[in-house]
């Protein structure tokens, strides 16, 4: 969800809300898929929740995030965990990895809750770049929201997803209501809150879930394994770089 991106304090809770508490399991699964002693790139590290889990496996991590607040928060967390010597955190967007890293630099690239934040064109571009910076046989790990494959699951997904995201969105936006002035508070609640709701319906804070992975993967990337949560609404994909020759 785009609205969480720049509010570190709300990010962890927001993410927990929209994954219905599966985020820890998802992150553990992600870390387990990373080969030991590898070089890993974590694109969109957020508050850095994945970093300690990866560091436990003895990997060297490069993490990037577009928001300076998030980078500061992730550094803070890395310092608390005492893993600063195996982690390098940079401020950069996913769209700048072409200038940052040479070909075949990483054993694994992690895209944890990043793909849905991007437009379709951006997704295609980022996946191509990931294929470029991965070593041969390197793996790309995607953890994100997908459209469930089965009809019944998809129905439940459509019904529950919207209110869930609405609550998460309002929760992150509501920080503006925290002011000492009672009149402003009344004004925000009765005037700005309806406007927020309106812009939620008209604007695009709600990100679109991903379709079946075959539809957006470039030719050099093949699915090597998948783990489904909530009937396939949240998935952990392990994707391998293959040689076309």
């Amino acid at each position: 969800m785009k609205a969480f991106e720049c509010v570190p304090a709300r990010y962890d809770l927001g993410v927990r809300l929209i994954t219905l508490g599966e985020i820890d399991e998802l992150r553990r699964g992600l870390a387990m898929e990373v080969p030991v002693n590898a070089r890993v790139l974590d694109v969109g590290c957020g508050t850095g929740a994945l970093l300690p889990l990866l560091a436990e496996r003895g990997v060297r991590i490069t993490a990037i995030d577009k928001s300076p607040e998030m980078v500061a928060k992730a550094r803070e967390r890395a310092a608390e965990e005492g893993i600063l010597d195996s982690v390098c955190i940079k401020r950069s967007t996913a769209m700048e990895i072409d200038r940052l890293f040479p070909d075949g630099e990483f054993d694994a690239v992690v895209l944890s809750l990043v793909m849905t934040e991007l437009t379709n064109d951006e997704q295609a571009w980022v996946l191509n770049q990931c294929a470029r910076i991965l070593k041969p046989k390197g793996s790309l790990l995607i953890a994100d929201e997908f459209k469930p494959p089965r009809l019944l699951n998809r129905l439940a997904f459509e019904i529950f997803r919207f209110p869930l995201h609405l609550i998460a969105y309002l929760y992150t936006q509501i920080k503006g209501l925290v002011t000492s002035n009672i009149w402003w508070r009344i004004y925000y609640t009765f005037v700005e809150l309806p406007l927020m709701l309106l812009s939620f319906f008209v604007g695009e804070p709600l990100t679109a879930p991903l379709h079946e992975p075959e539809t957006f993967l470039p030719a050099t990337l093949r699915i090597a394994g998948a783990k489904h949560f909530w009937g396939g609404a949240i998935r952990l994909l392990k994707i391998q770089k293959v040689d076309l020759e």
Binding site: C6, K66, T93, M95, E96, D98, T119, D121, E122, A124, W125
Partner: peptide, 16 residues
């Protein structure tokens, strides 16, 4: 308001 940033321009340069 922080919606149109350098990142927006970088994104469109790369994807277009």
């Amino acid at each position: 308001g922080g919606h149109f940033t350098i990142e927006s321009i970088i994104s469109i340069i790369k994807t277009s």
